[in-house]
Amino acid sequence: MTTQDQSEIFNGTASVAFKDARSIDGTDTRAVPAFVLGEELAALAEDDPRIVVLTADLGRSNRALDFAARWPDRFFNVGIAEKNMITTAAGMAAAGNIPFAATFGSFAALLCAEQIRTDCAYPDLPVRVVGHHSGMSMGFYGTSHHSLEDIGMMRTIADLTVVSATDANHLRALLRLSLDHPHAMYLRLGRGRDPEVYDRVPELTLGRAHTLRDGNHLTIIATGSEVHPALDAARLLAERGVEARVVDMWTIAPLDREAVLAAARETGAVLTVEEANITGGLGSAVAEVLADTGISTAFRRHGVPDEHVPVGPPAGLYAHYRLDADGIAAVAEELLEGSPR
């Protein structure tokens, strides 16, 4: 009997190595967002019988099987039927449960946009749609598996909360926060091998970003997988005499407008960084705040331009689009060339 389970490839444990020399290798799977999901939810379910978990045949890739091992009667593998999974989750939420429905970000946000809007957000049901392996993390699988439009699409849906996990500890905080959130939520997870930014589980408040580094020459507002390279870029810039503030804008809808306005007023320029299409994404959200308030500042959106990215290893794609530390630092310097320090 054949199987469609390709989790070993997606997890990076297969004999075929879909990476290059610059890709992160040997990362403990317990320390990356895609792999603490099931473990954390299983622990939370001990005290909260409302939690149920659904997946579309990707229980190994998102580690939902860690939840299934402890709570088999509260775990549902719907097979490769993502739209049905979201609608099923909505029905469970209507019955008083808190469902977490997890699949690749490209499938969750793009394929299931109608179900998220009409079945979850419109009736205001507490469904948590988990889009993992977002951005370009599945580089070799091409456009069908790249999730670059999800931020722009999800943040335009009324009554849908959109958040982005920075690392494993941050994901744990998001999952805990979500339990008392009464509305539908889209949780965006990174490439599954995100380096640590938070050395402990942080305290989170929706609508309030975290300033991770202070500076007065410019502010780098990053989200998700781009927060860590943004911090590295700030250190590179400091060596060149440029002090960059770094803001983790993990809360995309609602956006932290005050953090954006403070950056514009207190620093010389604002640079947004995201592993996503810049059309309609985080950069657009920040630009809307600046435009609405009439604040004038040097500003640039940095991410993937409005194009379909090439097929290739993720690390190579990050370098190609200057979404690594060196690239972000170079873009920041370009922005500052016409801005007084």
Rank of each mutant, 00 (worst) to 15 (best):
Q4R: 03
S15M: 06
K19N: 07
K19Y: 05
D20M: 10
G26E: 03
R30M: 15
V32P: 03
P33Y: 12
V36F: 06
V36T: 14
A42S: 13
A45C: 08
V52N: 03
A56K: 00
G59R: 01
S61W: 06
A64W: 04
A64R: 11
R70V: 12
D73H: 13
F75G: 06
V78R: 07
T87R: 03
G96C: 08
N97C: 10
N97E: 10
F100H: 09
A101E: 00
A102D: 02
T103Y: 03
S106T: 14
F107S: 01
A108P: 03
L110R: 06
L111M: 12
L111Y: 12
C112Q: 01
A121G: 12
P123G: 09
V129C: 01
S137F: 05
G139P: 06
T143V: 11
S144C: 02
S147V: 12
D150N: 07
G152E: 04
M153L: 14
M154V: 09
I157W: 14
V162N: 05
D167C: 08
A173I: 02
L175R: 12
L177R: 08
P195D: 09
P202A: 11
L206C: 00
L206T: 05
G207T: 09
H210F: 11
T211L: 11
L212N: 14
D214N: 14
L218H: 07
T219V: 10
V227R: 12
R240N: 07
E243F: 00
A244C: 01
D248F: 14
W250H: 15
R265V: 13
E266R: 05
T267K: 02
T267G: 07
V270L: 12
V270D: 12
T272W: 10
E275P: 04
T279N: 10
L282F: 13
L282Y: 11
A285Y: 10
V286K: 04
A287G: 06
E288V: 04
L290W: 04
L290F: 04
L290N: 06
I295C: 02
T297W: 00
P305S: 00
G312N: 00
G316R: 02
Y318D: 01
D324I: 09
L335E: 00
L336P: 02
E337A: 08
S339M: 03
